[in-house]
Amino acid sequence: MSKALSQDEFFTQLATLLEKTQQKGHGSVFLTQKRLSHDTSAKSPPPGTKVADDPLWDLNPPNPLPILIRATDGDSQSKDKVKNKNKVKLSTVVQPDDIEAFFARYAEVCKAGMQSLKKRDRSKRKKDKSKKKKTGDEKK
């Protein structure tokens, strides 16, 4: 698995990935988020060790846990069932303190990148207005 990127790098690469899909005209981008349950630093004991006799072991961890964000283009196989070496895979780890700042930026990047979704339909009103204007001009 590829190494976790810094937030800045993650956002620039995610923006490129979204743009690439947009230009290609078709395709998907997958974004996943989940709790990071294994500890990346070896110093402290893993916070989420499973306790066999307690089914609710993970409900009240002593400390807040980071979350893992992944992004991929989903092209794991090409058409002839050969593993795609150019598959894009990005990931980053968001610390509990950074969640709000991260998602604010995340929303901006996604809004900017997802251009093929249906925009709010204002065209009808505009057309009506311009028609009215035209008829008004003709009367003059």
């Binding site: 988020q33 509990p96 969640i99 809004k111 997802m114 979704l117």
Partner: peptide, 25 residues
């Protein structure tokens, strides 16, 4: 599922709110 661009911002914000549950905040 949605196809409306207007919803993207709100949905990502809700992902952030849900992220707080994941982080146990």
């Amino acid at each position: 599922k949605t196809n409306r661009a207007a919803e993207v911002g709100r949905l990502i914000t809700s992902l952030g709110t849900l992220g707080r549950y994941m982080a146990a905040l």
